[in-house]
């Protein structure tokens, strides 16, 4: 019983450490990219965007414990819904503001 518990804790800790290390790495990459200036601006933007996206997934997986298993369906649905709203809001804003800019120009 106690052993089980300890094993479980160790596994949990394991997950958190993987999460933390990847989070640090994924933050370090964009910073390094900007500071070292080795990439072209266009490539740099892509690197930052991808690192950001992977970062989001890492947080979900290791810190919020969301995965595709059945017991997490509720959470997953909420995340998908959030995604929908964010797409509507961010996408809509970009669309409207570029359209206005175009009309002004």
């Amino acid at each position: 019983m106690n052993d089980d518990h300890a094993a479980e804790r160790r596994q949990e800790l394991h997950g958190y450490i993987i999460g933390l290390v990847s989070a640090i790495l994924l933050s370090a990459i964009p910073f390094a990219g900007v500071m070292l200036g080795l990439l072209s601006p266009a490539a740099l933007i892509w690197v930052i965007a991808v690192a950001g996206l992977v970062q989001v997934i890492v947080h979900f997986r290791f810190f919020l414990h969301i995965d595709l298993s059945r017991s997490h369906r509720d959470d997953l649905q909420l995340i998908l819904f959030s995604l929908l709203i964010v797409v509507l809001m961010v996408g809509g804003t970009l669309w409207v503001l570029t359209n206005q800019r175009h009309m002004m120009g």
Binding site: L88, V96, N99, Q100, M103, M104
Partner: peptide, 15 residues
């Protein structure tokens, strides 16, 4: 309700 906000500024310059 998240898809209609622009109706509050129809007159503000989009096409």
């Amino acid at each position: 309700s998240f898809t209609v906000w622009l109706h509050h500024f129809f007159t503000m310059g989009q096409d």
